[in-house]
Structures are given as structure tokens and as C-alpha cells.
Write a protein that binds this DNA or RNA. Sequence first.
DNA 1: CGCGACGTTGATTTGCCTCAACGATTGTGG
DNA 2: CCACAATCGTTGAGGCAAATCAACGTCGCG
Lengths: 208, 208
Amino acid sequence: MIFYYPKVMPALTELFDHMSRFVPVSAEDKQVLTDLVEVRSVRKKEHLLSPGEICHANYFVKKGCLRMYFIKDNGLEHTLQFALENWWITDFMSLENRKPTNMYLQAVEPAEVVVLTKTNMDILSGQVPQMERYLRLIAERAFAASLFRMQYFFELSVESRYEQFNRRFPEFVQRIPQYMLAGFLGFTPEVLSKIRSKKRAGARKKLG
Amino acid sequence: MIFYYPKVMPALTELFDHMSRFVPVSAEDKQVLTDLVEVRSVRKKEHLLSPGEICHANYFVKKGCLRMYFIKDNGLEHTLQFALENWWITDFMSLENRKPTNMYLQAVEPAEVVVLTKTNMDILSGQVPQMERYLRLIAERAFAASLFRMQYFFELSVESRYEQFNRRFPEFVQRIPQYMLAGFLGFTPEVLSKIRSKKRAGARKKLG
DNA sequence: CGCGACGTTGATTTGCCTCAACGATTGTGG
DNA sequence: CCACAATCGTTGAGGCAAATCAACGTCGCG
């Protein structure tokens, strides 16, 4: 005997739960959505998108962690966004204008994602107004977060940027490699290493 | 005889034109919208929002220029966003969570804005699905632009950041004071001054 | 006219990057 | 299970881009 999950009922509970935090979601809405998305697993370090390609979908992270990054001339990576559980991630610039991206979209950890293609989103747009609203609110949040991050860059030194981030997202700092965090916060891995060693020295002194 | 524009038909042509670039807009949509927004003029340097206040509206710039900025400990201003004609501007963080902002929202030039309060947006949300869609697309664009800007900060030196910006938005550079541009691009007014003087010297050499 | 806001220029300082060499840890194939 | 490589993290020396500080033009406006 073979067990399988029929296409009409993949595990979208995380997505529905998340939506419910922002908008009411009816049973019919769920059905329409279910028919228009696909769940997919991504291996660690696997790329969902690479420079030169056109981004066709928006991804909702059910489990694991994705990131969007690019590579500078000097070889250093800079992560523009991370997406942990319950975050959406995509390159809107490429998605909306159907232009080639210059970004990588990669799984930092083994991940499960809900894939919503642009085509299907356009269909949903007419059929499920609450989805539209949900995505508007999500986009506005993401924008606000991005400006907030910008503010951090303007007003904080490299060291306090790390401290703030570490304070706000301690679990996060545990989950990702240091060189990714360094790139995300806008500096080199060496600097992060030195900051951490300084902190450790300070901590030892206190214990002394 | 007295001429006046009745409340039901303020000059929203710019807004409707802009919306039409993204979504179809019916006559009824326009009517509903007209009843739920207000047009307002803002004097140069006037503030629509100051730190400590809660942001209640999203602003569409018909004419002129607004900016959102904050002040660092050292007294330097950093502009997080500018909004020229046909841009929306607000502090979503404050607007959505009804929390006090730490930003200033100010007119750089005398401006005319369309004011859409959160309350009225919530009403529109149910009545005009196309407005919802429009604002989603706008928010996604703004987010994409913000990430793009972030990328510039990561990969370009101060000088090439200015060059790129000057190349892409020459009119813009004319319209705003240098110290605002410097803050926006993430450095001090002195540095900008030096870059410009270097450029002038180069230009003179070419002319001979 | 005189004041204040804005821009310029030069001297000095510093935070962070670069480069280089060396540990530690992880993962993989024999 | 071990050996070995690759990846990731650490540490130190030296350099540079941009910030800071200070003083002086210049323009617009009451």
C-alpha cells in the first residue's frame, strides 16, 4: 500500500496560520490557494535563483532558512535578506519587471517552501482579495524593516550593529555561519571575529 | 460670483493617472476614493510628522518634494526616503503598529499631497480591490528599491555612490540641498563638497 | 545691511579593510 | 574509521578612505 498526500491538500497550515494573523481566511480562500501553490523542499546550499535568470515566484518559508545575496568584485558575499520560518522572500525587481536578476536565492539550511508563481498570484489577485491584502501588509512590513536596517547603518558603528542584532535575534545568530552574518551587517568576517573575541575576553573578566 | 472646487472633485488627476499605470481604475472607484481622501498643501520645511507622534496617514505627492529623516547623536541628519511627484511616503512602522515614530516627515519644497489616513485605507480595502492591488505593487517596488539602495551601500565607495546617483537622477540632485543628499547617500556634507570640487577640477582640465 | 544657513577647504584622526598565516571543524571517500 | 581536504574561524600588522574638527567664503532673506 502506498500513502501519498493528494495535491489538493499539501501542508499549508503554516501559511494559513500566518495569513490569519493579518486577515480573515475562509475555507474557500484556502481551497483556491491550495490549488495555486506548490510545496517544495530545497537542499542545503541549493539555489532557487542565480544571476542572469528571471525570478518567477515568491517563496514562503515553512521550515528552514533562505537568503538572497550577491557577490562583490572582491569576492565577498553580501546577504540582502534572510528568510526564516513564516517569511516571504523573492527578488521583486526581477519578478515584477520580468528582468534578469543579479541575485542568488539560496537555502542556508534544508528548507521547505511554498511556491507562489507570479502567474498564479495574478490569478489569485482577482479571486482572493484577502490574499492581496495580506501580501500588501507583508510588503509594507518588509519595506519598513528595510528602512529600519538602513537607519542602523547610518547611526551605529559596526560593533554596536552586531550587538543590537545579537540582542534582538539571538537564535538567529546561532543558526547562520558568521561570514554570512558579517556580510549581512555590512562588514568583513575578520571584523566580526575580532568583536567576538573582545566580548569573550570581557566575559571572562567578569567571571574572573 | 464665487468659483470653488466641490469636495467631491478635488484635483486627484495625478493620483488616478499614476494608479492607471498599475491597475484599471473605474469611475466608481474614483468616486469612492475622492470621498475618502483629502488634498493638502504643505509649506517648505513644514513637518507632517515629528518624533514621538503616531503616523496616521500615507501621503501621495502631487507636487513638490517630501522627505523622511532622523537626527543622529552627533547632530547629522540622515534622510531615509525622498518622495518626489507620484511617490507615496509614510512611516509604515508607526502607521501599522500605531506606535510613536522616531522620524521627521518634512516638505523639502512647497508641496501638495493627497492624504490617505489608515482608517480610510481600511475602509477602501474592502470597497476598492484595485486600490489594494495598487498599494501592494507600490509597496513591493519601494521594498525592491530599498534593497537596491542597500546593495549600493555594500558594493560602492562613497564617491561612486554619488556618481551613480548623479547619473540616474540628475534633476533630483539639482532640486535638493547638498547636505540632504550627503545624508541620504550615507556620508558627511564635507565629503560631498570635496568630491564635487574634484569633479570641477577634472572638468576644467578637459576644457583646457 | 547684517545675520544665519549653507557650502568650501585643509589638517588631523580613526574605524574598518586588506592581506597573510595559522587553527579548528566538518564532511567525505577510501 | 581514519585521512585528508575544504570550509570556516582566528589573530596580527599595516594601510587607507572617510569622519572629525576648525576656519573661512558666500548666498539668501528678514
